[in-house]
């Protein structure tokens, strides 16, 4: 069997491999989707995370047949065409050197796969409002009301209450080596705890005071680099209450490894209670903080707020001290 060298034998080789390949791929994909897919990170705590998980699973179910295809081919080839079993194989010159049909099919299949993946990724990115990734100061894939909430936050006019459909802006300030969270909707108080309301679209505004950090809210499916002098916006929509981890995922110096804390998604009323209580408790401190702004420049006098006059991250940041722009 292994020494078949006529043309019918050639067909059989591929047919055998294809049979094993189809069977294993189907089994593999089914097993994956039943046993692994529901547990794939980042979980389903938010809409974003759920969609990221689905994307990962679709990619994996496409990747598995590719892996199996090559592995089965390699295993089959090495087993059947080792020189000891296959002493008498002869090659008919030109035919062994190339095969136009194979080449064309290979290119067509890989191109279609790749174009499908790129199209699918783009679709997922757009419908998922940037998929939880940092989009810079001028987000291209903002959800409805997202940009409005951003402007309102800067002007001190952002509002949110249980049951409202408003987007909740939350500022994330990275510094060596901790994250601080600021809530412009509630008087701009600062907290080292990240508490979020359930069933709400959140606009994270990520910035840094010193070097580049990356705000990685693992279970939320959010990751945005914290650049000094830059406002990096990422959107996500929370679902049910639950806890999540926050880590720094961009090397930021010696204690990068221990720059993490945990956060909580709570029910809307619980969140409002916490936020209003904390706002009141911190009123004295908040009065000393610089006004809410997209970026902060630490200097000898504390921290000045900064913003981009034209929303262009490459433009010069303007600082406005304690006075907010109108």
């Amino acid at each position: 069997m292994a020494n078949q060298t006529n043309t019918t034998g050639t067909v059989h080789h591929l047919r055998r491999m294809a049979t094993v390949w189809v069977i294993l791929s189907v089994i593999g994909d089914i097993l994956f989707s039943i046993f692994v897919a529901p547990h794939v990170p980042p979980g389903r705590l938010t809409e974003t995370a759920a969609k990221d998980q689905t994307d990962f699973n679709i990619l994996f179910e496409m990747a598995l047949p590719v892996l199996f295809g090559v592995w089965i081919y390699l295993a089959y080839a090495l087993y059947v065409w080792g020189d000891k079993r296959n002493k008498n194989a002869a090659f008919s010159g030109e035919a062994a050197r190339t095969n136009m049909k194979t080449q064309v099919w290979w290119m067509v299949i890989t191109s279609v796969t790749v174009l499908f993946l790129a199209g699918f990724g783009t679709w997922a990115l757009v419908v998922d409002h940037g998929s939880g990734g940092g989009q810079g100061p001028n987000p291209a894939f903002a959800p409805a009301g997202g940009l409005k909430a951003e402007t309102a936050a800067l002007l001190g006019k952002a509002t949110w209450s249980p049951g409202s459909t408003n987007v909740l802006p939350v500022q994330v300030i990275g510094q060596q080596w901790k994250f601080t969270y600021r809530y412009p909707t509630f008087g701009g108080f600062e907290s080292s705890q990240l508490i979020l309301p359930a069933n709400t679209t959140i606009a994270f505004n990520v910035t840094s005071l010193d070097v580049i950090h990356s705000f990685w809210a693992y279970e939320l499916g959010v990751k945005a680099d914290a650049n000094p002098q830059v406002n990096d916006v990422a959107f996500t929509t929370t679902k049910n209450p639950g806890s999540f981890m926050v880590r720094c995922s961009e090397l930021c110096g010696i204690w990068h490894g221990s720059m993490f804390n945990s956060g909580q998604v709570e029910s809307q009323t619980a969140f409002e209670n916490w936020a209003t209580t904390t706002e009141a408790a911190n009123a004295a401190n908040t009065a000393l903080l610089p006004a809410f702004a997209w970026t902060y420049v630490p200097d000898a006098n504390g921290a000045d707020g900064g913003y981009y006059p034209t929303n262009d991250p490459y433009s010069t940041v303007e600082t406005y001290g304690s006075k907010q722009p109108s």
């Binding site: 990170p41 990962f56 990619l59 993946l117 990724g121 939880g132 990734g133 499916g221 990751k223």
Partner: peptide, 19 residues
């Protein structure tokens, strides 16, 4: 190579970038 495709997909990249 196959994991590179995962990384190139922006939604999946959110989870796997920098890890």
């Amino acid at each position: 190579g196959v994991t590179g495709v995962f990384l190139s997909d922006v939604p999946v990249n959110v989870t796997v970038h920098g890890g």
